[in-house]
Simulated scan of single mutants.
Amino acid sequence: MRWTSALAIYILFWSLSVFLVLPFGVRTTREAGGDLVPGQAESAPHEFHAGRIAWRVTIVATILFVLFLLNYTYGWVTPQSVDLFGRKSMITR
């Protein structure tokens, strides 16, 4: 695999990981014991730490990418192993 392809796949894993990480560790203003500002949504986070979120996303994306790269190298899961409809003749290597 070329390094440019690996970088593009890592970026895809990183952008997917954002949606996996964002819901965790969020406290609303009401949960933090603060007062809502007029016009503020009740579900809005009390404090947003972009650096902390980016660090968590990078860790998750790196783990997922390493698993992907190991599978690419060693071939643990192949299209033939997940053939659910018995169409092995349509899959070419």
Rank of each mutant, 00 (worst) to 15 (best):
Q40F: 04
P38G: 02
L70D: 09
H49D: 14
F48S: 05
H46L: 01
F48T: 00
A32Y: 02
A32K: 06
E31Y: 06
E31Q: 14
L67C: 15
E31R: 13
V60A: 00
S43T: 10
N71M: 14
N71E: 08
S43V: 06
A44H: 14
V60M: 10
N71C: 07
A50G: 00
T58L: 15
L67N: 07
N71L: 12
G51L: 11
W55T: 13
G33A: 01
T29Y: 08
A44W: 12
P38D: 08
G34P: 07
I59R: 15
T28M: 11
A50K: 04
P38A: 02
F48I: 04
R30H: 08
R30P: 02
D35Q: 11
T28L: 05
V37Y: 11
E42D: 13
Q40N: 11
A54S: 14
I53E: 13
H46F: 14
G33L: 01
G34W: 06
T28V: 07
F48D: 05
S43Y: 01
A41Y: 04
G39Y: 08
A54R: 08
D35I: 13
I53L: 15
T62K: 01
L64C: 14
A50T: 02
I59F: 12
H46V: 01
R52W: 05
L70A: 13
F48H: 05
R56V: 09
I63L: 15
T58P: 04
L69Y: 13
A41S: 03
I53G: 03
I63R: 11
T28W: 04
L36W: 07
A32E: 04
L64Q: 12
A44Q: 14
V57H: 11
V60K: 00
A61Y: 10
A32P: 06
L70C: 10
R30W: 06
S43W: 09
F65N: 14
A44V: 13
I59V: 15
E31T: 09
R56M: 14
P45T: 05
G39P: 06
E31W: 07
H49Q: 11
P45N: 10
L69G: 13
I63S: 08
E42F: 00
I53V: 12
T58M: 07
I63G: 12
R52Y: 02
P38S: 05
L36P: 11
R52Q: 15
A41I: 00
I53S: 06
